[in-house]
Structures are given as C-alpha cells and as structure tokens.
Amino acid sequence: MVEFVDIALLVLLGITAFSILRQKNLFAAVMMAGIYSLLSAGLFVVMDAVDVAFTEAAVGAGISTILMLGTLALVGHSEHQPQHRPILPLFVVILTGAVLVYGTLDIPQFGDASNPAHHHVAPHYLEESEHEIGIPNVVTSVLASYRGYDTMGETTVIFAALVGVLLLLSLGPRPRRVVSNGQRISDTDSGKPVSEGGVEEAQEDTLQISPEEKTLGDTNG
C-alpha cells in the first residue's frame, strides 16, 4: 500500500513539474510550485523523514511561495519569450543529472539496518546523550550540541540569505499597471487607489505586461 502511495505521489509530482515548465503565467507557476512542495512533503512523510517533511512544508510551501509572490510584484507576471534556444544549458543540466544518478548507485539500501549511518556514532548518541547533554530529545541534542558549530554555520548562511532577500524585496512593488483584454483598466501612477471593479477584473489570468515593462525586462535580461 505504501508503494502505491509512493507511486501516486511521484506521478502527481511529475505532472506538477512539467506543468511548471510549460506554464507561461508566473502566478500559476508559483501556485504549482507550492503544490510541488506539498507533494514532496508527503513523500518525505512516507519515507519516515518527518522533520524533513515539516521543513519542506514550512519553507517550500509557506515562505518561498510568499517570497516568490513578492518577487513577482517586482518583476511582472508573465514570462518573456526566450531569445535563444537553450541547447547548451539543457545539455549541462542533463549531464549533471546523469552524474548525480550515477552517484546514487553507491548509496546503501534505503532503510537497511546495517547502513553505516546506524553504526558510526548513532548508538553513542542514543545511549549517552541524555547524560552528556541533559536534553531528553536526541535530535535536539545532536543539532544544538554535538553538531553545534555546523548548526551555527547553517544559521549564518540562512541569515545572510534572508537579509539579501529582504533588501531586494524592500525596493517596493512596481506601480500597478494592468492590461486586461488589450485594455488598460487600472493605473495607480496618478496616485489614486484602484476602484473595486478594476480589482475584480485585474486579477484574472489575463494579466499581461505593458510594453514599458517588456522593454525594461529586455534591457535587464
């Protein structure tokens, strides 16, 4: 039964990934990325990695969806047509993926009790951590004490990333310029709030970029 759940989740994961690839509307792509995170969290739960699943749900489906939406407020809502054919990047990505899959061939069997991970320091942690550290939860004592420097480094990296992202996003959103069905229906450049009817229509999937935004995007890219 668990295998069936695995297969079903992986099929859904594949469909989501391809739809993110094909999607030109970036709002929809961000929404699908949230679904992707939830599916991977489900897969991690199936593999008994509950803490990883929890992090995936909090970071992948929660924070990064919000950060990506904040980014969309800065850069516009739809993808530009690529100017070149991505043959070389595709080749590099496929090569890297093949090397990674080759690397997994050496990995010990999943869930095997004779794996090195279960024999190196894990028994010591399980038996001695309560006397040595004084915390009943083994995972917490490994994270905060035995591997304290490692955790401090990770936290520093995450803090630096957070500061960078906040600096970028705090530039403020672009002025609301929305074109629906070829007609401009709202424009807050004049400083006036948008009327309710305008908001209703503006949030349909027909969001397009104005020519001005397009030229901006082209010069940036």
Binding site: L12, I15, S19, F27, M31, M32, L38
Partner: peptide, 30 residues
C-alpha cells in the same frame, strides 16, 4: 488529483489559489 486538475486548468488565479489551499488540506488528510 482532482484538485491538481483544477490547478492545471485554471482559468482564473482564484481557482489556482483555492486548488493549492485544497491541496494543502489533502496533504494534511493524507
């Protein structure tokens, strides 16, 4: 998979938001 179908098809942004919300609920249930 039904919620996923709705998220794929759209057509409006609200459909997708609702689909993702439903999907989160389904993850909890799963």
């Amino acid at each position: 998979s039904l919620a996923m179908t709705r998220a794929l098809m759209g057509p409006t942004v609200y459909d997708r938001v609702l689909a993702v919300n439903t999907f989160g609920t389904k993850t909890v249930l799963l």
